[in-house]
Amino acid sequence: MSTYAFIFARGNSKGLPGKNIKLLGGKPLLAHSICVAQQVPGIDKIFVSTDSAEIAAVAEAFQATVIMRPDELATDTASEWLAWRHAIETLQAQGDSFDVFVSLPATSPLRNVGDVQQCMASLDEQSDVVVTVTPASRSPYFNMVVRDEEGASQLVCSGSQVSRRQDAPVVYDMTTVAYVARPEFIMSNERIFSGRVKSVVIPRERAVDIDDIYDFKLAEMFLESKDTVHVGK
């Protein structure tokens, strides 16, 4: 089977302007995803979908193929699912078909090759999509609330009788480490949870999702810590 990796990186990020080409550990954020994809056995081609000429230049410098995305698919309100479809449609129009779609968002630079391999291996006949998750720090059964305009609050799972966190069901946060699906599922459905979803658990230190400068600083800290351990060995 042919497997293509895609990195979706728009140029007008509001949370951290220019984040997709901001240097992290000496190379652009975007390049971390490209470099991991290049090391994963079974990934045949790597594409970067973007609306930005600057991002496109960085992608090409790291040997990824660029798919230019229309401006209307690169706004704050645009669904990334539609950007996924656009990338698939662009390749299909060129006569380039493939079997497995892998999205490796630029905002998760701390993933490793093994994480991606595990996600790819988890896509089977009983699943349509594989996502990544990490243990949540809070639970809707115990210490997550909803509130109204007057401040009246109640548990998200308001019928829960859990009195200790240890007794609550284990819950997870979705991460952006990787998404794996078949192109035909993406083209015939409207969202991830339209299908049968499997998840792969990623340790929190590799699941940082960069949205703002605080996330970026956290990623820098984990990256520096990993480099220090490697040097120490």
Rank of each mutant, 00 (worst) to 15 (best):
S199F: 12
Q118V: 15
G159N: 12
D211Q: 02
S225W: 10
G159D: 11
G195F: 03
Q92H: 13
Y141K: 03
F185V: 08
V146Y: 10
S163D: 04
P41C: 00
R164H: 14
K233C: 08
A87H: 10
Y141N: 03
Q94P: 02
K19E: 01
R191T: 11
V129Y: 14
G15F: 07
Y214E: 09
P105C: 09
V133A: 12
F142A: 01
R138E: 06
T132N: 04
Q38C: 00
T50I: 03
A93F: 06
R111F: 03
T175W: 04
S33A: 15
R164G: 03
G95H: 09
N20V: 09
T90G: 09
N12Q: 09
L29W: 11
A31T: 09
K19M: 09
L104D: 00
A53V: 08
V40C: 15
S137H: 10
D44R: 00
H32Q: 09
A87F: 12
R85D: 07
N20A: 14
N12L: 10
V145S: 12
F47M: 02
N112C: 15
P17Y: 07
D76H: 03
S160Y: 03
T50E: 04
V48P: 06
D227R: 08
D227K: 05
R204H: 06
S127L: 14
T132E: 05
K233R: 11
S225P: 03
S2F: 10
A87D: 13
M1Y: 13
A74Q: 11
N20L: 06
E72V: 15
Y179R: 15
E60M: 11
R69G: 11
D96L: 11
F193R: 01
F216L: 02
E72Y: 15
E54C: 00
R138T: 12
V162S: 11
P105N: 14
V113I: 13
Q38F: 00
V40W: 03
A83N: 11
A168F: 06
I21S: 06
F6S: 08
I55T: 07
A106S: 15
V133F: 00
T65G: 00
S33T: 05
R204E: 10
S127N: 13
G232Y: 11
I67E: 04
W81T: 03
V208M: 05
S163K: 11
Y214W: 01
V177K: 00
V116Y: 03
R165K: 13
V36N: 02
V113E: 09
Y179C: 06
K19D: 01
D148Q: 12
Q126D: 14
P203S: 08
L91G: 03
K45G: 10
L218C: 03
K198R: 14
Q117P: 00
H86M: 02
N112T: 15
S49Y: 00
A78C: 10
V102Y: 14
A9Y: 10
G232T: 06
M120E: 07
Y179G: 00
K217I: 04
